[in-house]
Structures are given as C-alpha cells and as structure tokens.
Amino acid sequence: MSTFVYMTRCDGCGHCVDICPSDIMHIDENIRRAVNIEPNFCWECYSCVKACPNHAIDVRGYADFAPMGHSVRVRREEEKGTISWKIKFRNGTTKDFVSPITTKPWGKFIPKLADGDKPKQEEINSQMLYTEPNGLNIDGKLPSVPKDTFKKGVYY
C-alpha cells in the first residue's frame, strides 16, 4: 500500500513533505501539489495522512482487495486533541473510532535535552546509551539470568 494525493484537496502547504520519515513526499514540479515520488518505499506510517490539514492524502490498498470499496481514513483535530478513524469494509460495514491524541498539555513531556549536562568523553565512549542505566530502571546494572534458573530441555 502507499499514499496518494487528491489534487483537488491539496493546497501545497508542505506539511507532508515536512513529516514524511522516508522523505518520499515531495512537491510536483508541474502543479506545485504534493506527490509521493516513490510509492514502493512508502511504509504506510500514515504520518502524512494525519498531518494533512486538508485531508488530501489517502492510502491505496493492495490491488486484490482495493477495487472492492474498502477505505481507512483519518481526521486529526488538534484543538480538541482527538484523532478519529473511519474504517469501511468491503461489505459496506463501517466502524468509527475516536481516540485522544494526548491527555496532557501539548509539549509537557518532551525531554529538554539541551538543558541537561554535557556528556563526558568516557560516557560518549561507553556502550551505554543516553540515560542508561538509570533510564532503564534496572537498579544500576544490566539484568542477567543465572544459569541455574534455566529450564532443562532443548532450546531452539
């Protein structure tokens, strides 16, 4: 599956270009509207579909079931903090879902990395990642499984 753009809805704002993690949403040179330049590389993350303020991006289903009229569409309402999905099945059944995007004020849990201490050289050289081991919540050392607790039998 891959994304495609409804040209009648797209206004060329660039939000999909900005958010696409695969960098495959670009601006068409003939009409200055968004276009998926490499549908094979699209991994259907739906980031652009959700980010589009005009709901101009949709996802094309696999050819064996797409012609039968299914659809998965999403509406993100930022001020309400909700994201709604409408799933339309091949037999015409529809299901609507509404979920919160977040229940906390926007940006509250974004870590302020720039405000933290600069890492020392030995920390940079260490195999531990940032905030490890404290961030892993494992009491200062990596977990280990004593051999005598192994189950007897064949391990595949």
Partner: peptide, 23 residues
C-alpha cells in the same frame, strides 16, 4: 469522502497545540 465525522469532543488544547510551520 469516507472521512470520519468531526469528533464529538470539546476543544481542550486551543492554540497550545498549534502546528509549527513545515520548514
């Protein structure tokens, strides 16, 4: 166009959730 209806929820975040410019 097969889109879901508007969510039946009040505005909670207002401009606090305003989008950034796509740049």
């Amino acid at each position: 166009d097969n889109l879901p209806p508007l969510a039946d929820a009040p505005k909670q975040f207002g401009l606090g959730i305003k989008r950034e410019q796509p740049k």
